[in-house]
Design a protein around this nucleic acid. Structure first.
Lengths: 252, 252
DNA sequence: ACCTGCGACTGGTCTGACCAGTGGACTAGG
DNA sequence: CCTAGTCCACTGGTCAGACCAGTCGCAGGT
């Protein structure tokens, strides 16, 4: 075996790919910001010196990735969209549907992220933010009397607040995305559970315990409670064969 | 305010979108499985009764989502790809690039994920996997004598192994993505640091401590060591104003 | 049996055309 | 002067047809 230069496999680069690349680079470097408009398709044809088919294929890819949106008749051209979690979530849902991501992986991920966020939050929170947390608890209590959707909404508000207090938007985004995926997988089962109301009440009490721990600044205990809460809430929907990993997360 | 029926905003559905939908549905229902081939573009034109431009836009979207791959000249037509997390990874990289994440957010995220992965791994690891971990330590030691890139490579192998042992591919994917982003931001600083070799040696010793903790099954201690290690290794590159959140993660 | 060269296909790109719809400019009416 | 209505240039969506470079399979020669 001769050890010559490391050649890379070469695959053809299509014209539309280089257009996508240019647009994404412009976005990453800040030359293009959300809200701005791209030139019209026919104008892009001139700028990139390609045909309209090629421009359109590039636009379709960008649109599918949630980068731009085209609307017919709009004289301003395609719009640069603000970053949205929908594309990220779409990919996760796809993987979850084909069992490439198991429910226990998703829930385990949430236990970790949410627990960590709560731990950090209990250290960084201001008195005002503690008040906000109490308010979300009140809202959750009220939502129980409406329906599961309302409770789910209030629960989301709680976790969004936690993520915000933890000062880490990456945790926040990941949490929201995975939360959405998990709910899309099992929300119907929870909503139709005969003891749905009891579950919601129990979850509320767990949340209140977490807030108590946050108030005393005991981040470790708060995180532990949060993980336990999530395990109690979702663990029943995880097949027995996958329970082990989740339990490893609950126990310290 | 009258509470009439909840109308949804209606946006036009484009022809290529319905093609994408049909293909994805066929995939979800199992009518189409990875490895199978789609008919050629001109055949799809006939089957969907649309123009080739429309078929091609659909194929570009599917290709961008990692569902199919077209190769020119292939008489078998576009190939249905096995499910992979590469599309998910692509979206996460986009998130990291666009969402203006601070270095402390990225590092904090890694401290959490890696710590959690190590904690779970110390519980679930088999004796064989423990051996594998020891081997990666040896590889890291050898890589120090080569250069920083080699060490970085060996370090990656260690963390990949940890993520695999933790039986959670979502953690693994997130870890790899964020690790790549962090390194792209500061790897040059680390590589050109005058005490680069000392840093690598120190990191190696920390990794060895982590493996020791894993061997004894003390997941909590292992995770704590891992977070401390990452803080020591990367913390110096984080501006003082963002140090607080990272310290909140190191201390329990 | 193996190699070789041809040809029928593939996807990638281009051109040019038509349509329905949008939104800004322009105009008629207040 | 301002407003309300009309109109039209232009948008994106789709289509048809063409050419090219490249690939694969097969027939025919060795």
């Amino acid at each position: 075996m001769t050890t010559g230069p490391q050649f890379q496999p070469v695959q053809p680069v299509r014209a539309y790919e280089r257009i996508v690349e240019q647009v994404e680079d412009a976005l990453a470097s800040g030359d293009l910001v959300p809200g701005q408009r791209l030139p019209s398709e026919r104008e892009l044809v001139a700028q990139f010196a390609v045909s309209r088919s090629t421009v359109r294929e590039a636009l379709r890819v960008l649109e599918s990735n949630g980068v731009v949106r085209s609307r017919p008749g709009d004289p301003n051209g395609p719009e640069i969209l603000p970053f949205s979690q929908s594309a990220l979530r779409k990919q996760m849902v796809r993987l979850a549907r084909v069992d490439e991501l198991t429910l226990s992986e998703l829930i385990g991920f949430r236990m970790i992220m949410d627990g960590a966020a709560i731990q950090v939050a209990s250290r960084l929170r201001t008195p005002e933010e503690l008040d906000e947390l109490e308010e979300t608890l009140v809202a959750m209590r009220a939502a129980i009397d409406v329906d599961f959707d309302a409770f789910s909404q209030a629960d989301l508000a709680f976790h969004e607040l936690i993520a915000r207090i933890s000062r880490n938007s990456l945790i926040q985004t990941c949490n929201e995305v995975v939360r959405g995926v998990v709910l899309s997988l099992i929300s119907d089962k929870i909503a139709h559970a005969p003891n749905s109301r009891a579950l919601m009440l129990e979850s509320l009490h767990h949340h209140a315990d977490v807030v108590d721990a946050i108030r005393t600044g005991n981040g470790h205990a708060a995180a532990r409670l949060a993980r336990q809460n999530m395990y109690d809430y979702y663990g029943g929907y995880v097949p027995d064969s996958e329970q082990e990993t989740l339990r490893a997360l609950v126990e310290d």
